[in-house]
């Protein structure tokens, strides 16, 4: 059975993965998970395995690509990098996200004042 989380949560994780790859260049699964945890100042402690579902979804849409390579410790690892289509999608999503969060923020402030 597919563990169905809400579309928003799935989408958020996908967006974060995409952003991480855009900022950091090619990374393996462990690296992406670590990076997201660090950026969120360990607020977001994920079950690191869930990152892979996100990676598969992004791969299938052609927004990232994958290749085997060697890690810092010369260990064999699979590296993911963002594609051109991925960057385009990221830009669009970022815009979208900003707009929505701005709206939500305004609405919430408004609610507070009342």
């Amino acid at each position: 059975m597919i563990q169905t989380k809400s579309e928003v949560l799935q989408g958020t994780l996908d967006l974060m993965v995409l952003k991480t790859l855009a900022a950091m260049g090619p990374l393996h699964g462990y690296g992406i998970a670590r990076r997201i945890e660090q950026l969120s100042e360990d607020v977001l402690r994920l079950n690191q395995g869930t990152i892979y579902a996100s990676l598969v979804r992004l791969l299938q849409k052609g927004w990232i690509s994958a290749a085997w390579g060697a890690s810092e410790n010369n260990r064999k690892a699979k590296f993911y990098s963002i594609t051109r289509a991925g960057r385009k999608q990221l830009n669009a999503e970022t815009e979208n996200w900003k707009r929505i969060s701005a709206v939500i923020g305004r609405v919430l402030q408004l609610a507070e004042r009342m």
Binding site: H28, Y30, Q48, G49, Y52, S71, N73, K78
Partner: peptide, 17 residues
Amino acid sequence: QDFRQELDAHLEMLTEE
């Protein structure tokens, strides 16, 4: 097979950390 290897590698890195 590929994914099993990938998970193994991930586990190794976490263990090292």
